[in-house]
Design a protein around this nucleic acid. Structure first.
Length: 425
RNA sequence: GGAGGCGUCGCCUAGUGGCCUAUGGCGCCCGCCUGCUAAGCGGGUUCGGGGCUUAAAUCCCGUCGCGGGUUCAAAUCCCGCCGCCUCCGCCA
């Protein structure tokens, strides 16, 4: 949620932010209007309520005919109080509903525009020249099938399209990658966490996932629960309605979870293999820190993501996502994209968002200050997902059908340095 | 799924319709006192909103798990929900 006080004092930055996302800024006026009505009702309510209390004491002290008369008067006052409360409640409900629809205020410096208006910050590593090596690269599914590691046909038989089995070396590779990610996080001071993957509506709404991308989220109607698309949701909920002590530095968590996405708007896109699937696993960093420290922490998260990408020896680039492609909760977002040789394009492997106080405000995660409490900042970033297997297989394939294992992953694969094709039954 | 009990401030706790503007203790914070420490003394200490102010204090409203209801008046009575505990049943 955006800061209502700031919005009242100066709505222009919020309007400008809305426009940079390519969205209508008319919501801002509706919010200010509802807020004004709410405040007017509340003002009289508080006065009458005060009178009512004084009256109550008189009634309690009185007896006989005097009491009867006082009760009659008190009754009128009570009716007025009730009406005012209803007015204020209605305006508050309206205000909340509008306020929750305004996405986070975009950070200064974020590129204006949509999905294609990102700014490339840098490229790291060397893309292999397969022509020079003398063979045409196979795509991740072909390699995965040769290794006996990926089975999408049976995934579709059992669960439908965009489902898959990871088998044998495929399953081991995912576990190795995610364990490396967990260990990387732990060694950098993160607390490892295995999170719930079903959450209550208020937690899902608080993280901002029921905004523009609500259709992406699986919902269990019978139980009024949502399946998370990332452990970020549960980790944001972890300290909801709490007052945190961040005096010793940021609270950093590394969540390991299954992730579920409906992919409702992506029919026909990335249909081959396991690039875009309904269910996968992810290790996600999640940080609570002071708002003043958020931008610097965002850079640190990006650094840890790059540490992981370097560890698995992948060529990648970093992009600064444009305003229109931020999602509702992020003020700024950096993506790391690995090179995908068979499609001659970059594939998103990580995404780190600075959500400033947006999620914390909705979930009431605060810290103590001299004047009282204030919302903290929350940030998140990817450290490893099932999708990384795609980039690993394609970038590390050899001409003979085998796949080179990055040195950092070998301890997690029993020392295996090479994944070799198997004959499948 | 069935039966019962419980939810008050960081923790414990008093409170069974108006004297609750919520008690007391522990912890914590500030001050005083004292060779040091401990003890002692005084004050403060839920959270949210509003007003006043350079700022703070004082002040006003809400807040006793959450939401409704009864009543002139609800921590207190009624209904629903959520959470926790005990027992029974079922189960990976």
């Amino acid at each position: 949620m955006i800061d209502l006080k700031l919005l009242r004092d100066d709505p222009e930055p919020v309007r400008a932010s809305q426009r940079s996302r390519g969205e209508d800024d008319g919501l801002v006026d509706a919010v200010l209007d509802a807020d004004a009505r709410r405040r007017a009702s509340l003002l009289e309510f508080e006065q009458r309520r005060s009178e009512q209390k004084t009256f109550g004491k008189q009634v309690a002290a009185a007896t006989g005919a005097e009491k009867v008369a006082l009760v009659a008067q008190a009754k009128q006052l009570s009716e007025r109080v009730r009406a005012l409360q209803a007015e204020a409640d209605a305006a508050q409900t309206e205000l909340d509903e509008l306020l929750w629809r305004i996405p986070n205020v975009v950070a200064p410096g974020v590129p204006v525009g949509g999905e294609d208006d990102y700014v490339e910050l840098k490229q790291v590593g060397t893309r292999r020249d397969f022509a020079a090596e003398g063979f045409a690269p196979a795509d991740h599914l072909e390699i995965g099938e040769r290794l006996g590691g990926i089975d999408v046909a049976r995934g579709a038989k059992v669960s439908g399209s965009r489902f898959y089995f990871l088998t044998g070396v495929g399953a081991r590779l995912e576990l190795a990658l995610l364990n490396l990610a967990m260990d990387t996080a732990t060694s950098n001071g993160f607390t490892p966490v295995i999170t719930p993957t079903l959450v209550r509506p208020e937690i899902m709404a608080g993280t901002g996932f029921l905004g523009a991308h609500a259709a992406e989220v699986y919902r269990l109607r019978d139980d009024d629960l949502y399946l998370v698309g990332t452990s970020e949701v549960a980790l944001a909920g972890l300290h909801s309605d709490e007052i945190l002590d961040l005096s010793a530095g940021p609270a950093r968590y590394a969540g390991w979870s299954a992730c579920y996405r409906r992919e409702a708007g992506s029919h026909g896109r990335d249909t081959r293999g396991i690039i875009r699937v309904h269910q996968f696993h992810k290790v996600e960093m999640f940080v609570y820190c002071t708002p003043d420290d958020a931008a610097a922490e965002h850079e640190r998260l990006l650094g840890w993501e790059e540490q992981m990408l370097a560890a698995v020896e992948l060529p990648y680039r970093v992009i600064d996502t444009a305003a229109g492609d931020l999602g509702s909760s992020a003020a700024r977002k950096f993506d790391c994209e690995a090179w995908l040789p068979t499609q001659d394009r970059w594939l998103e492997l990580t995404s780190t968002s600075n959500c400033t106080t947006f999620q914390a405000r909705r979930l009431a995660a605060r810290e103590r200050t001299e004047g009282g409490t204030r919302p903290v900042a929350t940030l998140n970033g990817t450290l490893g997902t099932t999708r990384w297997i795609v980039a690993l297989l394609e970038n590390h394939q050899q001409g003979d059908g085998s796949v080179h294992v990055p040195v950092a992953l070998r301890p997690y694969l029993g020392g295996l340095a090479l994944l070799e094709p198997v004959v499948r039954g």
